[in-house]
Amino acid sequence: MEQEILTFTDVKLTYHTRRGETTAAEGLNFSVNAGEFVAIIGPSGCGKTTLLSLAAGLLKPSAGVIKSHGSFGYMLQKDQLFQWRTIEKNIFLPLEIKKLNTPEHRERARNLAEKYGLKDFLQSYPSQLSGGMRQRAALIRTLATNPDILLLDEPFSALDYQTRLNVCEDVSAIIRSEGKTALLITHDISEAISLADRVLVLSQRPAHVAYSHELDFGEVKNPLKRREMPQFSEWFEILWRELNG
């Protein structure tokens, strides 16, 4: 029995504004197991980002229960590196915030950066790096506090296609080799198929999980290799139909 690290049970979320109220999610049930890579896709405007905010505890559900065992690292669409800090100082940012800014933790974060090819850029400023490198730095920043679960909010959508495929490779390799649990939300079907162990399809608002699929790529975890496999286009078709159905 695999250990569930994040569980949503009958979660409901209602937004209140002056103009009225919107139910963004209702009857939302799913769970993520330790070490699993789960991708969530959904029609635009169905509240995908809301779901990550709920998971990270930034929003409280109106009803239902969200249980998590472990700490979170949140990665956003754009790298959100602070331009007045060097890459190294950016990577240390979560350590400062969480008051973990000790030599050991800094050493660990620095090693992580060096392991994944940022060694020569540690003293550079974000503006001196390419988009791909910046996103990699953002991932290392997310990993700096050694979180148990990574929440990825369309982390590649701000990149051009070429860079996107490369960064996707990158991120996948780093997350797999660090053995992290990941929850990715995206509107890009092929990204979901190429990265995840399991794909959840959300319904229109109020969002709930309409379909859930274990992907059958066996031991192939590499996104580019998956794209070349015959199952890839089959999954694409299935998911595309479910998204638009």
Partner: peptide
């Protein structure tokens, strides 16, 4: 949002 997600 990023800082909040770090618990700032």
């Amino acid at each position: 949002l990023l800082l909040k997600s770090m618990g700032a």
